[in-house]
Amino acid sequence: MLSKGEYLKDLLYRYQVNFDISENYKLENVTYPAYAYFHSFSEKYVLRKEAQLWAVNAFEHVFFITEDELSKATLDLVREHITESIEPQLVRKGGKYPQKDHMCSYITFVLLTDGELSDEVKKEVKKFRFDKGYMFNFRGHSEARIAAISMKTEEIVTNSNARDMRKLLQDVFDKQGRKEISPSSGEIAC
């Protein structure tokens, strides 16, 4: 069985290609084992940069949580932290709206647990929603993505916004499993 620490280390290794990673990241009164940040800027202009047609900024904030057991209370705390701290501070940066040319901000949570995922947790993760538009979406929107992962059963549950993450999250288990098998004999290496 893969430990939460090993899984997180491997996952962060994959994220570091495109994201800035901070370990033991503190936001208000909560400390996360890791936080990953991504920003993309695109623009279109005619002949010279001064003649800009459009520009867009896209962001992703990924928070990693490790727990012995996940519960509905954990998900309630995640929702509260999104609405009370993350969205106002990291998306809007304390303002009424995000900056000009803001297109979208993804707020992603990856929840790792040693235990099994209870039916209640699976149900809550699947129905987890946060989507907020700014100025009728003229200043873009933000949305939450959430994935819960059991180290014991290697089960991955996501909400609908995070379903594209499943392949990456499953690949960590698949690659770790292949490392334990000796290629010459097909036996488990000790």
Results as ranks from 00 to 15, higher is better:
residue 4 K to P: 03
residue 113 T to S: 00
residue 84 E to L: 15
residue 149 I to P: 00
residue 62 V to T: 08
residue 179 K to I: 08
residue 19 F to H: 06
residue 137 N to Y: 15
residue 38 F to A: 11
residue 169 L to M: 05
residue 184 S to D: 11
residue 5 G to E: 00
residue 38 F to Y: 10
residue 53 L to P: 10
residue 7 Y to N: 01
residue 159 N to D: 07
residue 147 A to N: 03
residue 16 Q to T: 10
residue 96 K to N: 15
residue 47 L to I: 11
residue 137 N to D: 15
residue 44 K to A: 15
residue 123 K to E: 14
residue 42 S to P: 09
residue 186 G to H: 04
residue 116 E to V: 10
residue 146 I to E: 05
residue 167 K to Q: 10
residue 123 K to H: 14
residue 70 L to I: 03
residue 65 I to L: 06
residue 4 K to C: 05
residue 69 E to T: 11
residue 145 R to P: 04
residue 154 E to C: 10
residue 19 F to R: 04
residue 128 F to G: 04
residue 32 Y to E: 07
residue 152 K to I: 06
residue 171 D to F: 12
residue 25 Y to D: 07
residue 9 K to T: 08
residue 142 S to L: 06
residue 149 I to N: 02
residue 5 G to N: 04
residue 128 F to V: 07
residue 57 N to Q: 12
residue 126 K to A: 13
residue 4 K to F: 06
residue 148 A to H: 00
residue 99 Q to H: 14
residue 121 V to D: 02
residue 78 V to F: 07
residue 88 P to V: 04
residue 80 E to H: 13
residue 25 Y to R: 05
residue 105 S to P: 05
residue 119 D to L: 13
residue 30 V to T: 08
residue 48 R to I: 14
residue 88 P to S: 06
residue 46 V to S: 15
residue 12 L to S: 01
residue 176 Q to K: 12
residue 168 L to C: 11
residue 188 I to E: 01
residue 61 H to V: 07
residue 190 C to E: 14
residue 6 E to R: 08
residue 169 L to K: 01
residue 35 Y to N: 01
residue 70 L to W: 02
residue 45 Y to P: 06
residue 129 R to V: 11
residue 121 V to Q: 03
residue 153 T to S: 06
residue 34 A to H: 02
residue 54 W to Q: 12
residue 100 K to W: 12
residue 76 D to M: 12
residue 130 F to Y: 15
residue 104 C to L: 15
residue 72 K to V: 14
residue 187 E to F: 15
residue 100 K to T: 13
residue 27 L to H: 08
residue 151 M to H: 00
residue 29 N to T: 09
residue 115 G to S: 09
residue 83 T to G: 10
residue 41 F to Q: 14
residue 173 F to S: 01
residue 44 K to R: 13
residue 85 S to L: 13
residue 160 S to V: 15
residue 78 V to S: 06
residue 159 N to G: 04
residue 104 C to A: 14
residue 148 A to Q: 00
residue 127 K to F: 11
residue 36 A to Q: 00
residue 185 S to W: 02
residue 28 E to I: 08
residue 115 G to T: 06
residue 189 A to Y: 05
residue 53 L to T: 12
residue 6 E to F: 12
residue 159 N to I: 04
residue 95 G to L: 10
residue 89 Q to N: 14
residue 158 T to N: 03
residue 16 Q to K: 14
residue 75 L to H: 03
residue 57 N to T: 10
residue 96 K to V: 12
residue 84 E to Q: 14
residue 6 E to I: 09
residue 129 R to D: 09
residue 103 M to T: 12
residue 69 E to R: 14
residue 54 W to A: 11
residue 159 N to R: 06
residue 143 E to Y: 15
residue 133 G to M: 13
residue 184 S to C: 10
residue 116 E to A: 09
residue 148 A to L: 01
residue 158 T to H: 04
residue 22 S to V: 13
residue 45 Y to R: 08
residue 115 G to P: 05
residue 110 V to Q: 06
residue 139 R to I: 07
residue 113 T to C: 00
residue 29 N to R: 08
residue 167 K to G: 11
